[in-house]
Nucleic acid binder design. Structure first.
Lengths: 193, 193, 193, 193
DNA sequence: TATGAATGAGGCTTCATTCAT
DNA sequence: AATGAATGAAGCCTCATTCAT
């Protein structure tokens, strides 16, 4: 059943976030999933093959958070604020997960799947920008699809840096996100009064 | 001799870029470096211990390119253009290297060293921004240090995406970099006439 | 039904000849037989347990060919010629089968069944020799039962060698079989004028 | 050192003869050889890769026995008697070895090496026949090279049958070898008075 | 009688690291 | 400082067999 596949993915996410890709063994995953070692291979051809599924789940999670939190009718400024806050918060919650995951994906042959996994995320962001552009609240010169990627890229990269480089200092985090917010506001040509 | 250490690092870079972290074996590295298996351990305590050195070398390379190409006296617009072009070009040349490297670092315990390795890169960028700010060609409201990180983050992320997701299509690459350039110009508050 | 058992044996023969004993999996066999994995075990207690059945089928096949081709009334010379030709031809058709089969049997605990499987083959050959001896066309000093085994042994061994060691060269094959024929003719004391 | 390779082969022979190919594990071999598991793979690329070496050693052993026992100056009759006795005796001593080995070889990809491994054995036999032919004690019509193969084939096949099918009954064994001897004597056209 | 998902023991192999030379 | 043969722990995966349906 699909249920078992889901359980494997869930178990893999959990193990991965606590042990890191290098040290995650299939035996750990199956133990946590409560299945036999061989069963794993009924659903995934190899250890690395779970990675894309994990990424997918995580992107979905991010998206569902965003859809829940970001009011489609709100002003772009508020949307951005919520967006940034949500991504940072998720990044913070998931801690190692994102980095480890990327590491996992990068070291697998599944690197190329990244694109399709991120597709819904990009799409959501494009739509957001599209509406704002229609309303005239962001500059008309930008291309919504390409800018969607740039935005996601910069927000995630900023979020990663906070985790990676800084001790998580509430104060500093706040200042960073403000800087990021202002950066983006200007980039999008949002009127700053 | 230090020469041997350098040879190991160089060999490691080469092997890593062609095989990926997961499949890079110490035996490959030493073979390419033309030394004996045991010799590796005279210079590095473990396989993962080369990673930071590799990152350092690559950051240095990027920096030296930037220092050579970016005219400190030029207008910020031109500096940005050159900056973007250089990073994209390097990313393209190095292909998998960056991603694999990050993966390598991420999966090692050396993740935390990323900060210090990138320090000179951030510093260079800060200085660039600082000068522009002093000249009044970028908005005074931005914090040069934090913005330096954001800039490096977005440029690298954009460059990675081009390699990862798109077939490398000259035309599309051009459009992407233009979009990025405009994005940044706005973000920095550079006067667009 | 017995039909299903036969289908399993047939499938096993086919898989075995193309993949070799070591690489033949029960899953391959059932796939080819068009049945479920578990069904196999309703007809055979273990994987190795098909081996004797396979051998039996192949011996039967050989025998039926021989019975069809070798004229019981013909002169022993002609009978031998046909015999050799038939075995060589089968060996050639079946290619790896014989060797692989023997390997399969040998590596199983079923080695001892070989005797009973070959029994009808030996019997046929004994009868042939017996008649010739009664007619006085082969030497009276030979023991028909033991000689039957020797004959089958040498013919099969020669046939295997042709397949295994030599490139299958029509010309050489002809010369080999001639040499074998002459060898046997002398061994049996058939008058050579 | 070559010494270690030899030790591995020796250990493999011993383990193989007592456990059979299917049940022989690399771990058994290295344990008996007194080396580490990994060391095995410095000398052989895989478990199956020892098989040809084993076969080689066994052919060499047979040959050395034959060279020691068969008097090159003796009459062909006596040479044959000794030859048969020696092969049967070896077969008996080695018991499972030969069968298991063949099984091992057959189930490996090394089947084709059989030819080169047997080459010295064939050569020795050809020489023996050649001398006898020169002396005029065997029929001039036979081809020494091809007949050498036939002879080795029939003797080995007969020897195997004794082990495989019959309880080892001294009396019967004697009768079998006599029958074989007579068979061969006729086949070679040796004068029987 | 038939199914096929699930099992789980266990082997082969890899490869980072060591150490005697 | 350099070597490279030897080590051996450890993990991925296979696949014969079982069993609930």
């Amino acid at each position: 059943m699909e249920d078992k596949k889901a359980r494997i993915i869930q178990a893999a996410i959990e193990v991965l976030s606590s042990k890191g890709i290098e040290k995650t063994k299939v035996s750990d995953i199956v133990k946590r999933a409560g299945i036999a070692q061989g069963t794993f291979y009924l659903y995934f051809p190899s250890k690395l093959a779970v990675m894309p599924s994990i990424a997918e789940v995580m992107v979905q999670k991010t998206l569902s958070y965003l859809e829940k939190n970001v009011d489609p009718e709100a002003a772009i400024q508020e949307q951005l604020q919520v967006l940034i806050r949500t991504v940072f918060q998720l990044q913070n919650e998931e801690r190692e997960k994102t980095a480890l995951l990327f590491a996992g994906l990068a070291s697998s042959e599944y690197l190329k799947e990244w694109e399709s996994i991120y597709a819904p995320y990009y799409k959501w962001m494009s739509t957001l920008l599209g509406k704002a552009q229609a309303r005239g609240t962001i500059r008309s010169s930008l291309d919504v699809n390409r800018t969607a990627r740039l935005l996601i890229g910069i927000i995630e990269s900023a979020a990663e840096q906070i985790y990676l480089y800084d001790q998580i200092d509430e104060m500093e985090a706040k200042v960073q996100t403000d800087e990021l917010y202002t950066f983006i506001k200007h980039a999008l040509g949002i009127e700053v009064l």
